[in-house]
Nucleic acid binder design. Structure first.
Length: 333
RNA sequence: AGGCCCGUAGCUCAACAGGAAGAGCACCGGACUCCAAAUCCGGGGGUUGGGGGUUCGAGUCCUCCCGGGCCUGCCA
């Protein structure tokens, strides 16, 4: 039996190339080798302020983006978290197995809490829901970035605690670390590319060419090579080039850089062209899907049905183990 | 349940005693630059959380509502 992979992605409304090269491209690769379950995690999205009128469209857009990027619903399960209510049920059970102190030490919570006027208990509890997402399917592999390792460690802790208290049920969860380095903001290359930094700080996968061109062209660089280390901005452009161009072009420009002959305009042209080479086919598929959002919804419905089947079966056993639920009165069956 | 404090531009905040809503950062445009950054020049931006009231005049005072923070009490 194939090992099972779970990963969640927030419905941010727009995938950027940092998401794409960092996570999504991995999703596509993993679906060939593993039994993959991918979830658009809307319950995570509501831990901070959100607009209920916009959320459904964002969820749908994220699904369409992922499909356009090559996520194949015949190979992987793609569904929306809230369509499988067992996620929140298990999260509650896990809440009771999670130490308050552990949660207060989560650096991502401290980070995010600073940015919020209203800090919800849900934001605090986020890592527990995340543990439930993974373990509900008894997934053993989770593709994550380094920033998520702490949360994954918590999930392992919760699983271990559950297993020792109520009986072996959950597997040991292992991270699959993406080998791609973080793509940085073009405008502020010391910071990771992110939508929340502002419009200039990310390049959307589905963004119009003219706009992508503008962002690449105005990307921060430097006054030319100073010592052996590339400046963050130039390194970031080379990173995008490496991720999207063939290695010959990369090597050529890298050589020019080392010999001090490289004009950044040329680098930027190359980055733009290579990047569009990757994005154009994705954008074309995305436009097709936009005309067939009904089809996207069907994919999500079918995905939810398959996810629910696994989730319900596991939940029955989990309830039995901890002694709750109607069926716990009839342990015989 | 009671008490106290707060809400002004995207962000941080200012506005004597009630007398023309401002600054810094961010953002946009231009100059400079191979492109950028830095710098310089220029620009847009606000129903002062919302309603009602007092007043010649309300960001400022009164009142209700919404939202947020802190404290005390009570409690399944």
């Amino acid at each position: 039996m194939k090992e099972r992979v779970f990963s969640g992605i927030q419905p941010t409304g727009e995938l950027h190339i940092g998401n794409y090269f960092g996570a999504v491209i991995n999703y596509i690769r993993l679906q060939e080798e593993y039994e993959c379950i991918y979830s658009i995690v809307d319950y995570h999205a509501i831990t901070v302020d959100h607009d209920p009128k916009l959320l459904p469209a964002k969820v749908l857009a994220m699904a369409a983006d992922l499909l356009a990027c090559g996520l194949d619903p015949d190979k992987a399960i793609l569904f929306v978290q809230s369509h499988v209510p067992e996620h929140t049920e298990l999260a509650w059970i896990f809440n009771c197995l999670t130490s308050f102190g552990d949660l207060t030490r989560m650096t991502q919570f401290k980070e995010k809490a600073k940015q919020q006027e209203f800090v919800s208990a849900g934001l605090f509890d986020y890592p527990v829901l995340q543990a439930a997402d993974i373990l509900l399917y008894r997934a053993s592999k989770v593709p994550v970035g380094e920033d998520q390792l702490q949360h994954l460690e918590l999930a392992r802790r919760i699983a271990r605690r559950f297993n020792s208290r109520f009986g072996e049920f959950f597997p040991e969860v292992e991270p699959i670390l993406s080998e791609a380095p973080r793509v940085m903001s073009p405008a502020e290359p010391t910071m990771k590319m992110s939508k929340s930094l502002g419009e200039k700080h990310y390049i959307g996968v589905m963004e119009p060419e003219a706009s992508i061109y503008e962002k690449v062209k105005t990307a921060v660089t430097d006054v030319g090579p100073r010592g052996p280390e590339m400046s963050p901005g130039v390194a970031n452009l080379f990173l995008i080039l490496k991720l999207s161009a063939d290695s010959r072009l990369y090597d050529e420009l890298e050589e020019e850089y080392r010999t001090g002959k490289l004009k950044y305009v040329r680098l930027k042209e190359a980055v733009f062209e290579s990047l569009m080479g990757v994005l154009r086919p994705i954008q074309a598929r995305r436009r097709e899907l936009e005309r067939d959002l009904g089809g996207v919804k069907q994919v999500l419905e079918a995905g939810a049905a398959r996810a629910r089947e696994i989730a319900q079966e596991n939940m029955r056993e989990i309830r039995r183990l901890i002694g709750v639920g109607l069926e716990s009165f009839n342990p015989g069956r």
